[in-house]
Design a binder for these strands. Structure first.
Lengths: 219, 219, 219, 219
DNA sequence: TATGAATGAGTCTTCATTCAT
DNA sequence: TATGAATGAAGACTCATTCAT
């Protein structure tokens, strides 16, 4: 009976933990939805609580304060996901294949979300804690992986001779900036009737082959 | 005498307008300085008034309210400047020269400031009025100019065959994204000891010639 | 069988009541401990529940609300105890002995606790119900006993001729005020290295013999 | 004219300072009034603002926060006034005269106010900053003055041999405690029909001559 | 009976805006 | 025109109390 009781209590604890995680997620999802509508500063806790369908006080049962909620938001949605996998387990393809695949992946799955997280770039710039964490966990590792690929590609002759640091930031930067422009243009983007595949192909092509045609290229 | 009086009053009015413009500018400059220190939501009117060296009430003599001040900020710093000139009076160079010169110009003079103005992009996205204005006055014309250049470059054989809409957005996007990354990396950027000239050269090179070396390029 | 059942149920009920009283006491003790750490306004029900080792909800099984808990606190710790005994069964000593023994008793056992209960005096002042109860049950009877002793002492020639009402309040007041000062001085009290016996002797001496030496005393 | 302008500005600044002081005082007076009705924790800023006849925000133009308001309250009403004068410039009377005059003074002018400030003793006990300041500025100097007087009185033979530290605290304590009892008894005090002079005389007599009549006194 | 997550009224505090000087 | 004290609506956050388990 003691065993049974113990088991029961363990089961209950686990169940409780699961519920807690679900609630956190429920609130974070609501927060993200609201943040994509209003700017961060304009979002109020009641906004979030209403969207999440819980009381204001409930939010404070799961997060210390608004700032903590923001941090959790970043940790949950940015500092996880496919990018982290890519960095942690870079595939064994050759450098050109890797680049082309990386660009396609980011332009396809990353671009759709950039609008929702755009407000975070602002916060990241102003909030030292957030910035340090984002850089340490995401940006720097990603850039390092790309730099290494560029270096090895240059060494093997597959790539132009390039400064790897600039190239890595150029690649990531274009993905970021291109997605940002799509976000700003919104409804008025000329890509409404362009297939996403074509866009990805074109951008990848631009980055891999450049703008100039072969004959004009000056090595 | 009436004429003389009128003339005098005209002179006075002009002088007054000039002073008013100076004051507005003084306040907007202060606002921009403050925005670069604190996150947008954290900036208060007293902050700005202190930075500008005027009283809180004075700001309300020149701007209707905080939102109006923000609008003026965008109009003054984003929807004016060298970009407008470039679009209004595109130089007569050939397409390749134009592109290379455009990239250098933007990466040199634009990049330093993009961090300071970045928070405005957020506002642009949330504020329909602002976004429409920004797109109509700046973004769309700029993209149009670039698209035309790409088209003519492709026609002349100077450029790879490309979708001009994608290419134009790719170019602007990379400038935007690359500058944004530099801003985020800040002190930890690996470019601390790299000359700005080299960076500009490398990015320009990446965009014009692509990442892949000649022998691998598939037209 | 009915009888047996009834008896059993009576026993059970008594046991239950005893357990209930224990729980109440456990919570009140915890409340007192917490109040001695934080200011009254800063104490929360979770604070008390944690100190008592019970859940928040459990407290509400024994007390209607926070105010009720406070009332019980006063009733349990102020409106009971040795003072009540003293008043209910005054010893048969002569008046001088009684006074000296009263002072020693109060200064010894009462003084240590006065700091812990002091915050209750505030509540007593604000809460008419509580004040009436405290006065009716404790303060007035105590003062009456002392007044009677002073009267009889004056009549017997043992005491100076005094207004008994003033004298009684002077005695109680000094015990109260002296203990309060010790509480406020806390660590910085000069009595750290003075034995409690000496302090009690000195205070008792001051009250019984006064400050002036015999030769200066004006009857 | 420059001189005239300067003078004008100086006058204005002084006027402004005076108005600021008046406002602070106005708010502090209101706070004191409200605190004497409700316990400290129960008082809200709107309570005070309403009593003071100003807006909530105005209070924050003069005090950093509620805690700062409390500190100012203590500084303004407790750490100033006749007690400070007494301590700073002790009169040249002989020791017995001094004591008797001190007691009369405190029992007369101090006692009426003790009720209004009673809540502060609670705060003083819980709030280290407040306690340190109150002790350093008021309590310790006062006790030191009294201790010295007792010492010199004992040396001159005017007073009984006493521990000066205990005696000083006994004197102050009785004033405190006696006033406190009057406050608690309120309407039901038996002193309603007793002249204040008589009360003061009796308490002073008790402290100076003690309770025991001459013949019983044991030196 | 015990529990503790959920609730939302109530608090402190901020700050855009006004207006008398 | 410039000033800055006064204003009070609005937001972050707390905590006494409830109630489903």
């Amino acid at each position: 009976m003691t065993t049974s009781l113990k088991r029961k209590s363990t089961i209950r604890r686990k169940k409780k933990e699961r519920i807690t995680e679900q609630r956190k997620r429920q609130i974070l999802d609501a927060a993200l939805t609201v943040f994509s509508r209003k700017s961060f500063g304009a979002v109020t806790i009641p906004d979030i609580s209403q969207e999440a369908g819980v009381a204001v006080g409930t939010i404070y049962n799961y997060f210390d304060n608004k700032h903590d909620l923001l941090l959790s938001l970043v940790r949950t949605y940015l500092i996880t996901g496919p990018l982290v996998d890519l960095v942690a387990r870079p595939p064994q393809w050759d450098d050109a294949e890797f680049m082309s695949s990386f660009l396609e992946n980011r332009l396809t799955s990353g671009a759709e979300n950039i609008g929702r997280f755009f407000f975070l770039f602002n916060e990241i710039q102003r909030n030292r804690e957030l910035r340090d964490e984002y850089m340490a966990d995401i940006l720097t590792p990603l850039l390092k992986v790309l730099e290494k690929r560029v270096e090895s590609g240059v060494a093997s002759g597959a790539f132009h001779s390039s400064n790897p640091e600039v190239a890595a930031r150029g690649l990531v930067g274009m993905i970021l900036g291109f997605s940002l422009l799509r976000q700003i243009e919104g409804d008025r983007s000329p890509f409404q009737s362009t297939s996403n595949d074509e866009i990805v192909t074109e951008v990848t092509n631009l980055l891999l082959n450049g703008l100039l045609s072969r004959k004009d290229q000056s090595q």
